[in-house]
Amino acid sequence: MEASMAELQLDKIDLHILKLMQLHGKLSNQELAEKVGLSPSPCSRRVKSLEEAGYIAGYATLLSAEHFDLALTAYIQVRLEKHSTEILEAFEVKVSSYDEVQECCLLTGSDADYQLKVLVRDMKHFKIFLLDKLTTNDHIAGVRSSFVLKQVKNQTSIPLPI
């Protein structure tokens, strides 16, 4: 039977494993076990339990955008004309299909309904994305774009109570 998030009680070793895995994704089980003070078999079992309980959502390799000439990051705030469930869901499905969109968040406390983080080569490609893809949606009432001048912090790990 799979453990659910409520059933698994995390201890300091579990939290240490999760922190190390977030920061050093290429650690072998042997290396991870050594760093947390376990032998490889119990360490492997703990990682499997953490996966099954949903604490580990998946594994990924982070690529360097600059090596692919993706130099322009834009944040686009999108305001929709109507807020029916069908319109919101249709917008989310369409936006999710665009490779340029790194993040899409439904907002509250703002004039915008959604905020998109978009990664493209340059302003020419941004214009193509904006005019040929995003704003072809009939339900968009307005967009506001901001461009990243300097990335001060980019973190994929979440804070853990260690």
Rank of each mutant, 00 (worst) to 15 (best):
I87N: 09
G37D: 09
L134W: 02
L62R: 14
L18K: 02
R46F: 12
E86Q: 09
L8P: 13
V101W: 03
L72I: 06
E51C: 13
K35D: 05
L8W: 08
F126L: 13
Q102A: 08
A3W: 00
I56F: 03
L149E: 12
L119Q: 01
V118Y: 03
H67R: 14
Q115S: 12
E103L: 12
L72Y: 01
A90T: 10
Q77E: 11
E52I: 07
L15E: 03
V78I: 04
L72A: 04
D11T: 02
V148A: 14
S145Q: 10
R46C: 01
K48G: 03
K94V: 00
E51N: 12
M123H: 12
F147G: 03
S84T: 15
M1N: 01
Y75L: 15
E92I: 00
I76D: 00
T85Y: 13
V148Y: 02
F126C: 03
R121S: 09
S39Q: 14
A74E: 08
A33G: 07
A65I: 02
Q22D: 06
L72E: 03
K124W: 01
K117G: 02
S110F: 08
Y55I: 04
F91A: 05
S41H: 08
V143A: 02
S64G: 02
L107T: 15
V152D: 05
E31D: 12
H24N: 13
D132G: 05
D111H: 11
G54Q: 06
L62F: 13
N29L: 14
D69V: 00
S110E: 10
E100N: 02
T136L: 06
Q151I: 06
E103P: 00
L70P: 06
A65R: 15
E51F: 11
I76G: 01
E34F: 04
P159R: 11
L119F: 00
A53T: 08
K82T: 11
E81F: 00
S145M: 06
Y98M: 12
P159S: 13
E7C: 06
Y59L: 10
Y98K: 05
S96F: 02
I162V: 12
L63T: 12
Q77R: 08
E103N: 13
S64Y: 01
D122R: 03
M5R: 15
P42G: 01
E52L: 04
